[in-house]
Design a protein around this nucleic acid. Structure first.
Lengths: 203, 203
DNA sequence: TCCACACTACACACCGTGTAAACTTCGTAT
DNA sequence: ATACGAAGTTTACACGGTGTGTAGTGTGGA
């Protein structure tokens, strides 16, 4: 049994504290990195007992999961994605997708890593992982299907295989390797990524 | 100071134990995953005290670093790579590279993840990380330069930017997402990856 | 006003890392 | 063949993180 997650509270005081905890976690992640994201650190930063954190999140995995959604909202995931679906055609959507990745993903890299780590050691945390993966895959499918519908999908790809490959390429790791290890700018990442997508998937 | 690593011993007994430890670690990684790769587990499996592990590796990071090399050798990294450099031209080398990734990387995914994790929480472990990254980058540069020299590098890329992008695409994460999450076969991965590389980088 | 619930304070068990010191066993060089 | 030194054992610690238990304090909302 997946250890029922703690429900989001209706109570004012609770909601305040919960938000403070998520904000604290967010800041720790940005300022120090996910290694420092301990229950104690979050509690301290939120001005609350470590014990109180467990009144809001059953365990670290649950906190990190909630944090992901919190940050996605705070950083404007939906707004960033909207620009993709607003594109006039599928090829343009792919360009917008590259821009979206370069714009949005870097902000999520730390959480993403934290998530990756937690859900591996915590079989329970699989639910959240699955949800995120499903959302990402859905976006990729939409892109690939768009190309296919417009008959602009490159030879050698099907809507399914293109979606899978796009899904693989979302990996924060790729973005980090280029941004951090190789010192690219986001702008450059967006351009080169768009180029890669176009030459690979667009006929 | 980077806490000088423990030298590889000449002593027979030492070498035997050290090998046993690395083998034990290797098996744990394959059978259970890197979460189970604790000093205690490795010691148990090698039939040795936990304390003895510290006679061979200063800390967990050093063990994992050594393990990486151990596995690279055991799984035949050099042989796998040789097939890339044997290719008749740069484009064929890129195909061979895709095959190499699909063939070799899956075996290293677990260690790679373990490494990623350790070197983040252990500033000391940076040395090993740098070395691996440098080797990977050198390979990518060689591929990109090969294309460039043959004037077959696609528009929009330079030898440097192509190398960087190839380097980013090595990420075990990409391979895992497609192999594990999407259920691709290695064969399929190799083919689609080759296709991606060719259409992106080869004029 | 009063009650449930959020939160605190303090305490505990558990696990993993890394270190310490005194002891035993094994390899090997003479 | 033996004696020496390195490798390995045993037992024990300190430390930091997670997660739980429980009695008591405060605060929001009806």
């Amino acid at each position: 049994m997946p250890a029922s997650p703690i429900a989001i509270p209706t109570n004012a005081r609770s909601r305040r504290t919960r938000a403070a905890l998520l904000d604290a976690a967010h800041h720790i992640l940005e300022d120090v990195g996910f290694e420092a994201l301990t229950m104690g650190a979050v509690a301290d930063r939120a001005g609350v007992t470590r014990r109180a954190v467990y009144l809001h999140f059953a365990n670290r995995a649950e906190l990190v999961g909630a944090l992901f959604d919190h940050i996605a909202a705070a950083e404007g995931l939906d707004a960033s994605l909207a620009q993709v679906w607003d594109a006039p055609d599928a090829a343009a959507a792919l360009d917008a997708w590259a821009q979206h990745l370069a714009r949005y993903h870097p902000r999520l890299i730390e959480v993403d890593r934290a998530l990756q780590r937690t859900w591996r050691q915590d079989p329970d945390a699989g639910a959240h992982r699955k949800r995120v993966a499903a959302e990402q895959l859905a976006n990729c499918r939409r892109l690939a299907r768009g190309l296919d519908d417009e008959r602009r999908l490159a030879l050698g790809w099907t809507a399914v295989s293109a979606a899978d490959m796009l899904y693989a390429l979302i990996s924060s790791d790729v973005i980090e390797r280029v941004l951090v290890d190789r010192g690219w700018s986001r702008r450059r990442l967006a351009d080169q990524l768009a180029l890669l997508f176009r030459s690979t998937f667009v006929a």
